[in-house]
């Protein structure tokens, strides 16, 4: 029986999972929409992974979680490693491209840049409050143009002269886009212009003041859009590497971390049949009134968080 290591990356838009073997090869992977319910998404993800590994005589011995729902999912899966997505993605990318210096990552709601020197992270930046120039920006603009975000790339690379679109803010971009369409710009030029504006936005906001050095790896859901990849290459003047598992590096990285944690115990896929529930309660014990999240497994509380002080600690009853 072979040992396997599971990495789960639960993002705002999509949920990703990989199982690797002891030689760090990806044996099974899956990708689906989170749709605002990380617990349901992870259950579905594990069902799919179980089907894909059924005939491979595999025993999952360690689990790692990352992404914005890492704590919730990590608690439910009883994960050995719960790691932030920046570290996880850097570890995953370094395994695929050991020589990488700069990582661009654009996901559903966040975008980040990670700088690497001699195989270690030296600096990073993330978008803060604004989601302009991320995947959700592109998909909402796609809707406005009446097309699927998946077709965006094909249209964009047809363009010879991308339209200039004000992309500082989604609201302005949208009105500018309508205006440009109404005065007669071609659809492919507008789409290429949008891809370009995503890149400019990224380099001016997240990449501001950072020393971008090749080799550059581009990943996250938006890296599947060849229009954005081309725009990155045009603007930086460098080759942009995109791996076929580029959307999975977070999950891959955290699987590697789970493997390195050296704390192996058999993972029970029976989890998909258990009943999980979360409840939010208001503490009411002091003016802070913290919102505490309690996680229940088969109606028994297994963990809670959100309290600022010990007054709000929920007893495990």
């Amino acid at each position: 029986m072979k040992k396997g290591y599971l990495g789960v990356d639960v993002g705002s838009i999509s949920t990703k999972g990989v199982i690797i073997d002891s030689d760090n090869n990806i044996i099974a992977e899956d990708y689906l929409w989170t749709e605002g319910n990380p617990v349901v998404a992870v259950k579905q993800l594990l069902k799919n992974l179980l089907v894909k590994t059924r005939n491979k005589d595999l025993l999952v011995v360690a689990v790692g979680t990352t992404g914005s729902a890492r704590k919730l999912v990590g608690t439910i899966l009883n994960a050995q490693v719960i790691k932030n997505e920046i570290t996880a993605q850097a570890i995953g990318t370094l395994e695929l491209y050991p020589e990488v210096r700069t990582i661009f990552e654009i996901g559903g709601q966040d975008s980040k840049i990670i700088l690497i020197e001699n195989g270690i992270i030296v600096d990073y930046a993330m978008n803060t409050l604004c989601a302009a120039g991320t995947g959700s920006f592109l998909s909402s603009q796609a809707k406005r143009l009446g097309m699927h975000p998946e077709d965006f790339g094909k249209w964009a690379i047809r363009s010879k002269k991308p339209t200039k679109i004000a992309a500082r803010c989604t609201v302005f971009a949208e009105s500018d886009l309508v205006h440009k369409a109404q005065i007669g710009h071609k659809k492919e030029d507008i789409i290429a212009g949008l891809c370009r504006s995503v890149v400019l936005n990224f380099l001016n906001n997240v990449g501001k003041g950072k020393n971008i050095k090749p080799p550059i790896v581009f990943q996250g859901g938006v890296s599947k859009n060849i229009g954005v990849v081309k725009a990155f290459a045009d603007i930086t003047g460098e080759e942009i590497k995109v791996h076929k598992y580029g959307h999975l590096t977070g999950a891959f990285g955290v699987a590697l971390l789970a493997k390195r944690a050296n704390d192996e115990h058999c993972f029970d896929f029976n989890f998909v049949n258990m009943h999980f529930e979360t409840k939010g309660i208001e503490c009411m014990k002091c003016p802070n009134n913290c919102e505490i999240i309690c996680v229940y497994k088969n109606n028994k509380i297994i963990d809670s968080w959100g309290n600022r002080c010990d007054n709000g600690a929920v007893l495990k009853q």
């Binding site: 914005s68 790691k83 932030n84 997505e85 570290t87 270690i120 992270i121 030296v122 600096d123 990073y124």
Partner: peptide, 16 residues
Amino acid sequence: GLHTRLESFIDIIKIR
């Protein structure tokens, strides 16, 4: 968001 930033920053410093 705060914890993600702090956690990854601490990771960077520890690895370094």
